[in-house]
Design a protein around this nucleic acid. Structure first.
Lengths: 340, 340
DNA sequence: CTGAAAGCGCTTACAG
DNA sequence: CTGAAAGCGCTTACAG
């Protein structure tokens, strides 16, 4: 490649100072319009590339925002990320993405890298078991953080997520309303706020309907399609013969439906299944999946906006902002029928 | 936050020079072992954060690698990215991810941002219609690029992708071997190398079996699950009454299978369907999907390694490296049966 | 084994 | 409206 073009290259070629070039390229009104045009023209002609590291070293603003979630391959996070991307693009921020796969270690390394790069802020769905100190790391170093999808006890940062307890109770109530009494809960973990809230919502709904809660009807663990698929065998062999399953999320539900289908039973008739999240896939699954919309786009949009607002100086109130979930009734649930 | 801790802070607190601190923190053997330990200890105690922008301004190496693909929410790219992530993590590189959604504009903006940040290299699956100049932008500015999944005519950069023509012929031959003669091809576009190659592979296989190629049996367009689902109506109403469909990818195939199921036909018996990619979902779909493994993990791993090797000075040969696809036979395909 | 000094390419008061 | 100069926080020859 040719000699590197920098501000001084342009300055010399035009007989101006680097200060003027710098101002002109950033559209400062301090520079006369025609000088500005001439400078921009020349920058283009020379193939000038703005050196952000130098600028950011000087200004201590990098334009970089970090985003770290459990796993971007999970469409639930994918849908949140898409909304974040849209917001950040609009304000010309660059975002750096990482999965932590629920490794506190990996998450901490990401935060450190982001600090080293001078990240302006971070949006995170904290890993299971994230210690409070790790969260402090961000704010102590002047990098504001916004949480999504999960909250951490003892951390009072702005947090955007669905109202899990309420959402899962919608699904459970829907099944109860269809006459089901033996309802299993498939998937999830007690190690996250989300997991605890969803199980609680299920328990609450059953109690309110005077249905005894049988702990053996809970099959914790699965959070993926594969997991739901594998859980089908366990589910179908439960001695209580459940006629319905409230699933942790849509992926688990779709996997479970596939597993149930393999066993020759018809979902929506023999067994009712609900999902959670209302992913794009939910409506085109066969049968189409009854689920709960979890407002992913809303979560992503609001979290990104909150961070940008804070960077712009205004201060969104801290604490948890719950997005209201909504029921989506489709073909995977139907009236109670006793199992053979 | 407290006053920012930098090299000079540590230097002063220990009565040493910044040069020594800098060397010690990077484990230089030039610094005595106990001095080194003392320095590291102090750095930790003070909560020192390495300023990469400053370092990178000085060394003109950033440790950043850019990755840009069509859409990370597509599990095909997700699986490639996972492999890239694994390789880059190992060498302590940070990666910046972006979708271009086949917008040349968005892709160019990403490349420019990456150049501004001093990116060390870029891995890209180029957007449809990427002009050769845009590809030059990377190398002209000393940032090596490696292509994945798609190639561009006239660009001789290292490229890693599956052998699409061969792969789709495997699927087509499998159907022909089962006795099918009226085989549709669903999805894809002629605007990418991948699209042209796959259609060509399908055509070649038919010709070789002396089956006349009927252009009306091609339904171009769909590349998503939703697209495949919607194409089912068109497919089922084709007057030629095809008994099998070669799909662009697994997503289209799964969508199509759902659509066929809704129409009351049984995939694997009434209609045979093949996918492409062998995504995780393929094996747990119902029926499980016969498909072609496209070596995503291999593509990601090799592309990342090629870039890292080049950054380390060695020079992987340019040109296209084709990964051999493999057939995965499952339940979605079965022997020919005339349609009612 | 350790230090003094220059320089990476910007931006920003300040002066004119 | 434009310029001279300092400084952001590192690293790297060079000297000792």
């Amino acid at each position: 490649m040719a000699q590197k073009v920098k501000l001084s290259t342009i300055a010399e070629s035009l007989g101006l100072s680097t200060a003027t070039i710098s101002l002109a390229l950033r559209d400062s009104p301090l520079v006369a319009v025609d000088t500005r045009e001439k400078i921009k023209e020349q920058a283009r002609a020379l193939g000038y590339i703005y050196n952000r590291r130098a600028a950011s070293l000087r200004t201590s603003r990098s334009g970089i925002i970090g985003v770290v979630v459990h796993d971007i391959m999970n469409p639930f996070y994918g849908e949140i990320l898409k909304a974040i991307e849209t917001e950040l693009d609009r304000s010309r921020h660059t975002f750096i993405l990482s999965n932590h796969y629920d490794s506190v270690e990996k998450q901490r390394m990401f935060i450190e890298t982001l600090l080293q790069l001078g990240g302006d802020g971070v949006i995170m769905s904290p890993a299971i078991g994230t210690p409070v100190e790790d969260m402090r790391l961000t704010e102590d170093n002047g990098m504001p953080a916004v949480l999504i999808a999960r909250s951490i006890d003892g951390v009072d940062m702005p947090t955007y997520r669905g109202d899990d307890s309420y959402g899962i109770s919608l699904a459970t109530n829907h099944l109860i309303g269809l006459g089901h009494r033996t309802i299993a809960m498939i998937g999830g973990t007690d190690q996250t706020s989300t997991g605890r809230d969803r199980y609680q919502g299920y328990v609450n709904a059953l109690r309110k309907a005077n249905i005894e809660v049988d702990p053996d009807l809970r099959i914790p663990g699965p959070r993926t399609m594969q997991g739901g698929f594998e859980a089908a065998v366990h589910f179908l062999s439960l001695p209580q013969k459940p006629t319905a399953a409230v699933c942790w999320n849509d992926l688990v539900a779709i996997g479970l439906m596939n597993g149930i289908g393999r066993a020759g039973l018809v979902v929506g008739q023999d067994i009712s299944v609900t999902g959670y999240d209302d992913l794009e896939q939910a409506s085109i699954a066969t049968p189409s999946l009854t689920t709960v919309s979890n407002g992913q786009a809303e979560v992503g949009r609001l979290a990104a906006r909150a961070l940008l607002d804070r960077l712009a100086g205004s201060h969104e109130p801290d604490g948890i902002h719950l997005i209201k979930p909504e029921m989506r009734i489709r073909q995977s649930t139907g009236p109670y029928r006793p199992r053979a």
